[in-house]
């Protein structure tokens, strides 16, 4: 029973193809996986191997051609568009390579945005805690255009953490950062996830980062090899 309850994410025979005939790309090809709660999973693989597609399917950003994605036992694609959005904002946090901050909002607002979308009250103390942890206390009123890459990514991490989602999906979060900042960001991310007991799945090309993970999944031609 213990093993069963520890599974937070389950992929069942997931398929996603693009194109047709000669141009057919098997981005995700009959992939099945189980991910345990609270673990840090690194997804590695060559460019074009289907890592990002896999992550997007897990996050419900894209729909599979076949198969199911179960998060805490719930088939996310059985949900209608608006319910899926609600599910996503409660259960999943995203971190992207190019940060994707909202340019018209300052750092604080970018962080609390998911709470606002979920009509939740902002617990100032809790958010301050996160902001402090990511080291942006003096940048709360800064607009994204005034931040460095590292600061932007920290903001994006804080935004992903703020709703306390069960799973954090990070798509090469350090891809645009220098190596010093990269390590700082990953350490920060890992420590946050540990503190809040969250599950982290991260795409990375970096061997060092992969080695910091509890589990590494290699993706090749759309298939996950664990």
């Amino acid at each position: 029973m213990g093993k069963e309850t520890n599974t937070i994410l389950e992929l069942e025979d997931l398929v996603k193809y693009y194109g047709r005939g000669e141009n057919l790309v098997k981005a995700v090809d009959h992939t099945s996986l189980k991910i345990e709660r609270g673990k840090f999973t690194a997804i590695v693989g060559r460019s074009g191997s289907g890592k990002s597609t896999l992550l997007h399917l897990i996050g419900g950003l894209d729909r599979p051609d076949k198969g199911r994605v179960l998060i805490e036992g719930k088939d996310i694609f059985s949900l209608k568009s608006d319910s899926l959005a609600q599910f996503r904002r409660k259960k999943i946090g995203f971190i992207f390579q190019d940060y994707n901050l909202i340019p018209s909002l300052n750092v604080w607002e970018n962080i609390v945005l998911p709470l606002g979308l979920d009509n939740r009250k902002v617990n100032r103390q809790e958010v301050e805690q996160i902001v402090e942890k990511i080291g942006l206390t003096d940048k709360k009123s800064a607009m994204p255009n005034a931040l460095s890459g590292g600061q932007k990514q920290r903001t994006a991490i804080a935004r992903a953490l703020v709703t306390k989602p069960a799973i954090i999906l990070a798509d090469e979060p350090t891809g645009n950062l220098d190596s010093q900042t990269e390590l700082e960001v990953i350490s920060l991310l890992k420590s946050c996830v540990q503190d809040f007991g969250q599950t982290l799945m991260m795409i990375t090309h970096d061997e060092t980062i992969a080695q910091m993970a509890d589990r590494v999944i290699i993706v090749e031609d759309g298939r996950a090899i664990t």
């Binding site: 340019p103 607002e109 709470l115």
Partner: peptide, 18 residues
Amino acid sequence: AGIKRSQCKGYESLTIGR
């Protein structure tokens, strides 16, 4: 980005209207 400012006081919490 259409945004020229580097600082902005902003809201403590956000709604769709804000």
